[in-house]
């Protein structure tokens, strides 16, 4: 899902406008970085430099914040984001076996993206639907009461997309 030059330029403009609007609020950095992460899917060096210039702070400060929080990513993510919840409720109901199966199926570890750019496995602790444990989500879709045996079938649906 790479962006075209025009899309990229439009998103840059949008971010610039957002920064203009928010740079004078108290503590503007996090909301601006969250906006950038949301529109680009990751924080490229270009984006970080632009934020730094606009707020008149060093890029190193932005890099520091970006690497502290799990939500910010410095590399592009895959088309489909897989999260297997490893919160306590899911863990005691066997989430690890589900995660192991996803890892085995895709041949990548948590936090990595497949070579074809189709899937990223993302670490998650509690999605807030512990009643359905163990829970896996792919993008917006929620799969509750998972057993390892279901993993392949579910992944195949997204492989076919």
């Amino acid at each position: 899902m790479a962006l075209t030059q025009e899309q990229l330029a439009a998103k840059m403009e949008e971010l610039k406008a957002f920064i203009e609007e928010n740079k004078n609020v108290d503590g503007p950095l996090m909301p601006i970085m969250q906006k950038a992460q949301e529109s680009f899917g990751y924080l490229s060096i270009e984006v970080m430099t632009m934020i730094a210039d606009a707020l008149d702070i060093p890029v190193s400060k932005i890099y520091g914040v970006a690497t502290f929080y799990a939500q910010f990513s410095l590399t592009p993510k895959g088309d489909n984001i897989i999260q297997v919840c490893t919160g306590t409720a899911c863990y005691v109901k066997g989430a690890q076996a589900v995660l192991d199966k996803v890892i085995e199926e895709l041949g990548i570890h948590s936090g990595e993206t497949t070579a074809d750019g189709k899937f990223t496995i993302q670490d998650t602790r509690c999605l807030g639907c512990c009643g359905l444990a163990p829970v896996m989500t792919i993008n917006e879709d929620v799969y509750g009461r998972m057993v390892p045996g279901q993993v392949k079938g579910i992944l195949d649906k997204y492989r076919a997309l």
Binding site: G27, P28, L29, M30, M33, V65, Y69, A70, F72, R125
Partner: peptide, 19 residues
Amino acid sequence: GAGAFVCGEETALLTSIEG
């Protein structure tokens, strides 16, 4: 928040709001 458990701790939370 942006996915950091320690930000539930009050002083960390406040620094996080500050950016």
